[in-house]
Design a protein around this nucleic acid. Sequence first.
DNA 1: AATGAATGAGAATTCATTCAT
DNA 2: GATGAATGAATTCTCATTCAT
Lengths: 210, 210, 210, 210
Amino acid sequence: MGEPSRRDAILDVASRLFAEKGYNNTTTAEIAQEAGVAEGTLYHHFGSKDGIFLTIFDEMVEEYMVGAERLAGEGTNGAGALSSLIRFHFEYLEQNKNRFLVILRDFPNHLATENDGRSAESRNRFRRMTDILSLVLTQGVNDGTLHPSFPIRDTAALLRGILYGTTRHSMLGIIDTPLSRLSRVVEGYCLKALSPPPGGKGTRRKRGTK
Amino acid sequence: MGEPSRRDAILDVASRLFAEKGYNNTTTAEIAQEAGVAEGTLYHHFGSKDGIFLTIFDEMVEEYMVGAERLAGEGTNGAGALSSLIRFHFEYLEQNKNRFLVILRDFPNHLATENDGRSAESRNRFRRMTDILSLVLTQGVNDGTLHPSFPIRDTAALLRGILYGTTRHSMLGIIDTPLSRLSRVVEGYCLKALSPPPGGKGTRRKRGTK
Amino acid sequence: MGEPSRRDAILDVASRLFAEKGYNNTTTAEIAQEAGVAEGTLYHHFGSKDGIFLTIFDEMVEEYMVGAERLAGEGTNGAGALSSLIRFHFEYLEQNKNRFLVILRDFPNHLATENDGRSAESRNRFRRMTDILSLVLTQGVNDGTLHPSFPIRDTAALLRGILYGTTRHSMLGIIDTPLSRLSRVVEGYCLKALSPPPGGKGTRRKRGTK
Amino acid sequence: MGEPSRRDAILDVASRLFAEKGYNNTTTAEIAQEAGVAEGTLYHHFGSKDGIFLTIFDEMVEEYMVGAERLAGEGTNGAGALSSLIRFHFEYLEQNKNRFLVILRDFPNHLATENDGRSAESRNRFRRMTDILSLVLTQGVNDGTLHPSFPIRDTAALLRGILYGTTRHSMLGIIDTPLSRLSRVVEGYCLKALSPPPGGKGTRRKRGTK
DNA sequence: AATGAATGAGAATTCATTCAT
DNA sequence: GATGAATGAATTCTCATTCAT
């Protein structure tokens, strides 16, 4: 932990370069040079260029998922948990812009299709997000704070799409709204879209009613 | 118009290969061979491999934007126009899966950052989407059918993010909900999120009141 | 002669482009476009890209040689003829900078080695210069105005080298002396180097005699 | 020093092939094959085909300039130094025909115009020759052994032109005089052209004295 | 004479990976 | 663990030339 290990130096440099120039436009020679190590050292630690990428990816997603899962467990009620989750998402990305840009820019094209062990496993890790969202939605339905008008699974899929799409557009500069504002906008609209019908919660009977 | 020109043959083959294997994993040699033309012909018509990509992209986005703009102009009221727009979006993509997959998988990494005239122009074209959404939202506010709880521009940005994120996840198989179902889910939630407050539309007075 | 024929338009454009960018860096497509003709037209008139080059070369060298030969015949005495020749050389090049730059920059590398008819013939044309210089030197020896200290042929070779080398360095900007000044410098030194020994013209013995 | 490094093998092969066939007609594949290395190794060491050329050029010119500068410093008097310089020039080229042919045939067309750092720097190196000649001329003027009838700078420019032009014509076979004879011819004429006026060396006052 | 779409044989360059030290 | 010279397969792009119209 004390020694600024070569391993970490490589990951830091690679994160930055991947984010700045994209995975394909970053050469292993550059990474090695900027990290102050020999090119061979990259291979000692990570086995391949893909290995470097997947390590960055895994470490980040794991951290994110752990944070998200903790929040989902803590919430007092479904609506609150969803709010927390949305806020956490945008805060976390705000603080990890570089590393997330890597994923945003390069993941799907390169490793999204291959099915060799590690990259498949990495992708799976991300899918846990849908599970977490489903969980929170179910909780909300049960405690009456959320009233999805479509099946849980589809609603969770929608929420993932909202989080991903808005984050991506903002980070790539396609829209002007910054992440911090986006957080409030997304939270506001999601809660409204999932809000109980006007009459009061008791009147709704579809599913999860007494 | 009748002759299946070499130009079109190239674009068709390239669309398919890019969608199947990704831009980087498709070689110009393959495109030429499958299109039954010489490799030089690719360069005669499109100047570069990027040129082929951008041509596919431009033609598709242009078609999409024209369709979207027409709908936005036709709608009877704001909420109706928004519904139409959302349906059109998912229908259009359903019918142009291949070509859109190309964009989904490869666009940002490759050309999103470069600023050489053509790719910059291409990206601009895409930004018209935010304008259209803003227009429809404004219309809805004026005719009282939509009640955004956040500024128009941020709301439009959110809608773009929703459309993009959900479409992407579905097309890449990250979520299981198919585009057709997604269309209804997105439409339902968006309308609800933008629905007038329970009290009645007449209470709102900001703009467009009597 | 009245119609600005396509043929001439092509030669003019090609001269300029070859001079500006070099033969290898000028494409037939560029020549055709700037001359306002189709690429095929180039081949109708000149058969090949080399053909364009050799035509420019031949026309220029022929003009130059005709001028040089006329002067050599006219001179009142050898020294005078040599002076005229030197002045003519620099004046002619000053007036035909572009076309000469073509030769300066590209001739040897491309066609200097091949021995297929036309390019060999073209090169021969240039060799007439050594003959003219030899002629003038002989004339000067006979009329007592020039006293070469080395065989005529070697002296002529030297003069050619002087003319070529100084012209080249000046036109390519390797030295700062402009052609006009160079003309006087070369003339002055050549006449001095070939001047009769101090004692008088009749006495001419080897060189540097007491 | 003992190991015939791959780097040197590449340079040797490239020198020979460039001289034999010209730069443009020599492929990197050929160089690699004949040098017994992989094509990538060329790029590992020299970065580009141009890089190989410029390395050959630099090493040769540097060697030449060092030799010339040493001679210029050693001479007992100006005329003697000039003689030494001329002899050195032709001897050096005689011994480095191959490498010089490369420069003679290809340099100007290819890199003479581009201004990307390295090639510009290379050309500069060559310009030192004018400085050396100026130095020697100045020395000769001061010690009374040389009497240029034109400004030093122009005279130096002329000398460079003579050396270049005669060498080139001889090496390319445009004239029949071999380098060894040329050496004496050039030396003889240059000294005569720069010789003191008949009146006597002691009187030397600037030039153009009454 | 003129056209210009089509050609296709090259050529330079890239770069992740290996392996002897 | 660390090195970095060497690799070589793979790929995009060039451009003079042809020929059917």
